[in-house]
Structure formats: C-alpha cells, structure tokens
Amino acid sequence: MAVHAAEEDFEEFVVLRSQSLLRTAFLLCGGDRGAAEDLLQEVLERMFVRWRRIKGPPEPYARAALANASANRWRRRSRKPEADWELAGTPSVCGHEEQVVDQDAVLRALAELPPKMRAVLVLRYFDDLTELQTAAALGCGVGTVKSQTSRGLARMRELVVEVTR
C-alpha cells in the first residue's frame, strides 16, 4: 500500500499547491494562461512518476522544475513566439483601469525577457527565493543569479516604460 499512500500524498499536494504553482507558471510564461496550465500539468505529471524519489519538500522542486521547463520550452519554440503580443498580457481579473494597465505592462515586460532572466526574477520576487535557492533551482551559480537579477530589473524598467508610454 506504500504506492497508494504516495499517490494520495501526491494528490493532496496537487490539490493544495496547484493554484500557487499555476501563478508561478503564469508569470514564467509571460502571462499566457493556457501555456501556464500546460506547463504545470506537464511538470506535475513528471513529478507523479518520480514522486517517491523526490527528496525534500516537493514545492521547491516543483518551482524549480517549472522554471527550468519554461526556459527549455522557450528554447524549443524560440523561432516562433507562442503568445501573441496583444493577447499575452490579458489579465484574468478585472479591476481598476490603472491596475489593469499596470498588470498588463508587467506581464508584457516579463514576456519580453529572455526565459532564464524571467525565471530568475519570478523565483526571486514572486516566489521569494533567496539568491542561493534560486541558483540551486536553476542549476547555475549565485553570481549568475545576481547578474541576471540586476540586468533583468533594469530591462523590466525599460520595458514597462515602453509599454505604458
């Protein structure tokens, strides 16, 4: 019954953490909701197979897998941008107009960043990972995280200004 217990654990994890993970995936995909669902489902299905061999808390594992999968995914499809610029940033929540514009600008700017840089920013500022944790999740050095963060923030500023102009 160990197999069944593991599957129950996994199911509980999916039920409890999918919403949070989907939001990470949403940002990693530059605001493409459909792509985010596909990405998360793919990552979770892979985790199902490996579930009993995952060491440590599964959520950081999932976030790292999402970040890496999103980067790889973009590499595979780099010749053909997946999200239409006009559609990519469509927010799913209606609110104050200014807030909508701001959210739209953030998503558009994220979508413009290189995938690795986007992943660094999402893990650092949305998932609140430390530089060390981000480096571990992405399989790179802390120095790379520092430089990607610095350059990413600078690029985001430029892009947000361009989008909202």
């Binding site: 599957e7 996994f10 199911e11 999916v14 039920v15 999918s18 919403q19 989907l22 939001r23 990470t24 949403f26 940002l27 605001g31 909701r33 985010a36 669902e37 998360l40 489902q41 979770l44 299905e45 892979r46 985790m47 199902f48 197979v49 927010p91 799913s92 929540v93 807030q99 701001d102 959210q103 953030v106 998503l107 994220l110 920013l121 999402v122 500022y125 949305f126 609140d128 923030l153 985001m156």
Partner: peptide, 30 residues
C-alpha cells in the same frame, strides 16, 4: 516588482478537473 507580479497573477486559478487530469496523465506516463 514582487507586488506587481502578485497583482498580475492574482485570480489565476486552476481549471475544474485539473487534479484528475494530472493524475491520469501521470499514470499514463508511469
């Protein structure tokens, strides 16, 4: 930027049946 990201992602939620889809897909992969 963290707050802006959270605002942008707020309201994004999994579709109905997502957990079942994941479990079925996982079993197929297995």
């Amino acid at each position: 930027i963290g707050a802006a990201m959270r605002d942008a992602a707020e309201g994004v939620d999994v579709r109905a049946g997502f957990t079942g889809d994941v479990l079925r897909g996982g079993r197929r992969r297995q």
